[in-house]
Design a protein around this nucleic acid. Structure first.
Length: 270
DNA sequence: GACAACCTGACC
DNA sequence: GGTCAGGTTGTC
């Protein structure tokens, strides 16, 4: 499940190979993943050069010459690989861009992911980018606390809300709350500024560590080259229900919050 | 603020 | 055969 560190890893992988190359061919093989944007046909990309690839929250943005951009959100099971992976079933290949020297393939078992090709002028106003909160790495502890203080819902749900902070998902929200010693059910607005400073610090540390480990392959996440990440070996609480807390040793708990599982230590997180 | 919907594969 | 996984949108 790609969150900020996984998406960041993919962006770096793809950038190292694809930037500067011209598009030879591009095609949607399944229209379900195509969003209704400016351009329905991927062939609009033909002949254009890839200038840059960037990340905003969990979105990947490809910038082409002549003011064309492509936004991709991987949702749950989307994968962008710079070459065909023989271990992935071809029936899940839904989009591709053939460059001069490389081919970029989009696989998605569940077809939740979305790809949209649009003019640069509309990029900023795309509904998925427009409403995003700040990037965790670009926010001061004070501003982070200001934003959280305005939210009345449970802190875990505030962290998952992309309009609050962009890029956190279930794994890193659980991990950050564990290191900050904060229970996921606490009302966001009631948490002290001192504790929110610690939470901000935990988020930065966890995300940095995960990026340095090329993401978490707890399920089926693969980077841009089809390789698994390494952070799953360093997870403290996510998916560890019933296992001992790495801090105090009592059994970790799982509750359902906002329809999603939250994993935490009953003793260390108050 | 809760919850269904979108999908499929993995697992019981 | 039923349940679960979770990012995001849409609906009540």
């Amino acid at each position: 499940m790609p969150e900020l560190p996984e998406v960041e890893t993919i962006v770096r992988d793809l950038s190292s190979v694809l930037i500067g190359q011209k598009v030879v061919e591009a095609k949607f093989l399944n229209n379900r993943i195509r969003e209704n944007c400016d351009y329905k046909r991927a062939s609009i990309l033909k002949g254009r050069q890839l200038k840059n690839i960037s990340r905003r929250g969990k979105n990947i943005v490809f910038h082409f010459t002549e003011n064309i951009a492509l936004i991709c959100h991987l949702k749950m099971t989307g994968k962008l690989l710079v070459k065909a992976d023989s271990s992935l079933d071809k029936k899940h290949l839904h989009f591709f861009i053939k460059f001069e020297k490389s081919k970029l393939n989009y696989y998605d078992v569940r077809k939740f992911g979305r790809i949209c090709i649009l003019r640069n002028s509309g990029l900023f106003n795309h509904p998925r980018l427009k409403k995003l909160g700040p990037e965790p790495f670009e926010i001061t502890p004070k501003l982070f606390a200001d934003i959280i203080k305005k939210r009345k819902k449970a802190i875990k749900l505030a962290l998952l809300d992309q309009e609050v902070v962009a890029g956190l998902g279930n794994i890193y929200a659980d991990e950050s709350l564990f290191y900050a010693g904060i229970r996921p059910t606490l009302k966001a607005s009631g948490i002290s500024r001192a504790r929110l400073k610690k939470l901000h610090d935990s988020i930065i540390k966890v995300l940095n560590k995960a990026v340095n480990n090329r993401g978490t392959s707890v399920d089926d996440y693969l980077d841009g080259f089809g390789q698994r990440g390494n952070f799953q070996n360093q997870i403290a609480v996510y998916g560890k229900t019933g296992q001992p807390c790495p801090n105090c040793g009592i059994q970790l708990k799982r509750i359902v919050l906002g329809g999603r599982s939250a994993h935490f230590c009953w003793k260390c997180q108050k």
